[in-house]
Design a protein around this nucleic acid. Structure first.
Lengths: 345, 345
DNA sequence: CCGGTGTTGTATAACGATGGAAAAGTCAGC
DNA sequence: GCTGACTTTTCCATCGTTATACAACACCGG
């Protein structure tokens, strides 16, 4: 197969361990020996076998990142951030997708790929609390995203209630009075979009003249542009007559804007739109999208740091109380609420 | 740490190898023994240590997929397809991104992560032919995408010349006469967008009245929406006065449409736009995007199949001549060339 | 020149799994 | 009951690396 320590050792006339010491930068090696060994290493093109090293060390240096889907640019961008940050800390990221299905999420939480990975960062959608409690796996787990659990794991998420409230208040401040919420998932209004829906309600409750009927909450089947387009169509047909829409995420918002344009409804004059995620698409829509921008870099770093703290921090760190970390967010104001600036170029 | 074969063996009162035989479904095991061992396995929750297995077998069951970036939905969607297909064949995909930088691409081609992965699927952008020839690595490599090399590796790509020609001809068939090409990269017109540019030229050459000046070729720095928006602006300012644009990819096309809309140029009445990739965004732009749709599923399958053929096919397969596989593509006609259909509901 | 101290290098045993050969067990037929 | 053929199980070596323990060596003061 390949060149092993043994080959290098034989050629350099030293023991296997000495070569290992050189490779790992162990202190007590004579400069002369080190140089000779290094030369043979370069000569033969030796590269350590990670598999063997990992077996011996009991750690693989691989962490898994399980996201619902990569097709959603938010997750793709987040994955990018996690991979880059982890690489800087000499960890390899194994990227997986769960399709947002409970059985797949359970699989990962239960330790799918156990012993191949040192730890897991999971962004769950359908996972239940009991699935986490029944976890028969010791690899550290960090949770990501809106859902909240009572299981003892670190959790990284922006303050979804505050963010949704900020977005909704922005619409109300512009004078809108019938602000709809798009994206509470069918049959699970309580659970999945819980926090963002709560933020929406809070902002509306604070604003005297604002309509707050349930007819302004439109469910979707999923989180794609198509779901947003359909839900927007249903909302318009229902006669709820919104003058603004706060969407669960940017994809839904883009889909909603598409339906609005198709029907000749002007954005933002007739209906203003706000999204959530700040994906790149939103910036280049023909009507650029106002949105909540979670600080993805900060989320990625917090998730990796939390995981590595448990991995590398020794026993006291591994046993420490679970932490809830809240990275920041910002409201990015664009044309879908402010309107098009006067001809600028 | 965890439960090993040894623990199971001790508890079940058999040897380690017998447990291994049960785990691997070896034939010669008494039903009675098998059942007893299986019971202990379930009881203790034993899971094989993949690292150890891989060390012994010399294979890891992991293949790497190195793409320029995940932020581009085309690559995210492709990654999705590769991961799913490989999973069905019991292979794990390690997803990486090179940022389209030559040094990173070289790193992967040279065997970065050698011995952690069994093989590599690489979609290069800046990689040079000599980088491939200098490859000191025996793991099979499959190349993906537009660039062509003279190195002995399997290559999967749709017929870019034919696809670009189809796209351009579509515009010419609609009566456009000044069809621009957007996305030939600065300073490297020859290399990176070579094939698509050639397809564009071919279509124009076939069409008597069509303008073919170099002023209709606009360079970009990269492949993002922003690059497309800027290039479109420069093209408009240059006085080239195009009545149609064929873009290197959908992201550039979306950016270009954004600029057109901003400047009050109507799509498709004044300028028709065609993209390349068929990413989900294009379908939900407020003017949906006509585009070339490479068959991503077929590309993913061909890439994985080609790699696994070399891995699992034995010596004769590993030594076989490199193959060039051309999955299909289709022209998807949408509003950015056909215009908006009459009010449909 | 000796013994203590500190540095440099080696031999060997793991890590957890699998492959092959040898040993033990089973069974049919004579 | 014994032989031979076959099935089932065990034993040992092995993959490439690192940890532990220890041997060898140099250096220094007395």
């Amino acid at each position: 197969m390949g060149i092993s320590l043994k080959d290098v050792a034989a050629r350099a006339g030293v023991s296997v361990k000495t070569v290992s010491n050189v490779v790992n930068g162990y202190r007590h090696v004579t400069p002369a020996t080190r140089q000779r060994v290094q030369q043979v290493i370069d000569e033969l093109g030796y590269r350590p076998n990670l598999t063997a090293r990992h077996l011996r060390k009991g750690r693989t240096g691989i962490i898994a990142l399980a996201l619902p889907e990569l097709g959603n640019p938010y997750f793709a961008e987040l994955a990018d951030a996690v991979i880059s940050y982890a690489a800087g800390l000499d960890y390899i990221v194994l990227l997986d997708h769960t399709n947002g299905r409970r059985d797949q999420e359970v699989l990962f939480a239960q330790g799918f790929r156990a012993r191949l990975i040192d730890g897991l960062i999971l962004s769950p959608i359908e996972l239940e609390n009991e699935d986490l409690l029944a976890r028969g796996n010791d690899a550290p787990l960090v949770l990501l995203g809106e859902r909240e659990y009572e299981a003892p794991h670190d959790h990284i998420a922006i303050d979804n209630v505050a963010a949704a409230r900020t977005a909704t208040r922005h619409l109300l401040d512009l004078g809108r009075r019938r602000v709809a919420f798009l994206g509470a998932r069918h049959g699970r209004v309580r659970r999945v979009a819980h926090l963002r829906l709560r933020g929406w309600r809070a902002a509306i409750a604070e604003s005297p003249g604002a309509a707050d009927g349930d007819e302004l909450v439109a469910a979707t089947d999923g989180y794609t542009r198509g779901d947003g387009a359909q839900a927007m169509a249903r909302l318009l047909d229902s006669g709820a007559a919104p003058d603004a829409v706060f969407c669960y995420n940017d994809l839904i918002a883009v889909g909603a804007m598409r339906t609005l344009t198709e029907r000749g409804v002007r954005v933002p004059e007739d209906v203003a739109v706000v999204g959530f995620d700040d994906i790149d698409d939103g910036r280049y829509c023909s009507t650029s999208l106002t949105t909540i921008a979670p600080h993805k870099q900060a989320i990625a770093q917090a998730a990796v740091d939390a995981l590595l703290a448990r991995l590398d921090g020794g026993d006291e760190a591994a046993q420490a109380e679970p932490r809830h970390i809240r990275p920041g967010f910002a409201l990015i104001r664009r044309e879908s609420t402010l309107g098009r600036p006067l001809e600028s170029g």
